[in-house]
């Protein structure tokens, strides 16, 4: 156990150093993130000026995106260049380097998780944290609706991160059948945009689409934690949401293990 903690720390430190060798990337990442924030803010100011926002305020919406970004990047990073495990696994599979990673004295998934967390830290520093600071200073971001809400928000974000990771893994395994992989990340992003409310908060959705989003697991990654944060979910509603998050974790974990067994069969037995 102690050995694995040490190895985990070293793997993350090495990824961090690799990223730090590309200084222009860091600069480009921060500036493009700030441009995105400005564009998003301008868009929502305009939309709210039409007066059709219902019970939601502009401050709530901007908080949703800015804090939600912090959550999604901390829980959803995949490697220092990307946010999808399909990009990592796909590259390993296509180059054949997966053979090297499988011949090491720690499991492939351990290496994936360490790389994922390194990516999360790197992208938080180069993307979501600068946005957060600028937004707090220039736009104004709402604090959590209460201390208790903040605790449940953290719990919801962690459960949501597990769900996000499991969905990411399940989609990523398709690289072993498809070989080409770049569009899987797009596919995943589209699913979370449409059913997870990462592009447009679900509270703006028409009823039928909202109903579909509510029975699917994608909303747990960002929308549910942010509703807890903003106090739009409270009391018993929080426990119902967290309960169904746990239900989805159990289901998705079973699916992930099942598909991984197929992948191992394909890799190890068929040599695909």
């Amino acid at each position: 156990m102690k050995h694995y903690i040490k190895l985990y720390a070293v793997l993350i430190a090495k990824d961090f150093r690799r990223f730090a060798t590309y200084r222009t990337n860091i600069f480009a990442g921060i500036t493009s993130a700030l441009f995105m924030l400005a564009a998003r803010y301008a868009l929502w100011v305009t939309l709210f000026a039409t007066g059709n926002a219902g019970d939601v305020t502009l401050a709530e919406t901007m908080t949703f995106f800015v804090v939600g970004d912090v959550v999604m990047i901390l829980t959803g990073g995949a490697g220092f260049t990307g946010t999808s495990l399909s990009e990592v696994i796909g590259a390993d599979n296509m180059s054949g380097d997966i053979a090297l990673k499988l011949s090491r004295p720690c499991s492939y998934h351990f290496q994936l998780v360490a790389g994922k967390h390194a990516g999360a830290i790197i992208q938080t520093l180069s993307h979501s944290l600068p946005i957060f600071i600028v937004a707090v200073i220039f736009i104004g971001i709402l604090p959590p609706s209460g201390a208790e809400a903040f605790v449940w928000f953290v719990v919801a974000a962690i459960l949501g991160g597990v769900i996000l990771t499991l969905i990411d893994l399940i989609l990523a395994y398709s690289v072993f059948w498809l070989t080409d992989f770049w569009y899987i990340a797009w596919y995943k992003r589209a699913l979370f945009m449409l059913f997870g409310g990462t592009f447009l908060p679900l509270w703006f959705y028409p009823d039928s689409l909202r109903a579909a989003a509510d029975v699917l697991p994608f909303r747990f990654a960002m929308f549910v934690p942010m509703e807890v944060y903003l106090g739009r979910l409270y009391g018993r509603e929080i426990f119902v949401a967290l309960g169904s998050a746990i239900f989805w974790i159990v289901v998705l974990f079973a699916v992930e293990r099942l598909i991984w067994r197929r992948v191992q069969f394909k890799l190890v037995v068929q040599g695909g």
Binding site: L7, V10, K14, R18, T21, Y22, R104
Partner: peptide
Amino acid sequence: LWDLPVRDTFELFKTMY
């Protein structure tokens, strides 16, 4: 490790093994 000096991979393998 492609972007780092050779000695960095040595250190990684020291921990890994």
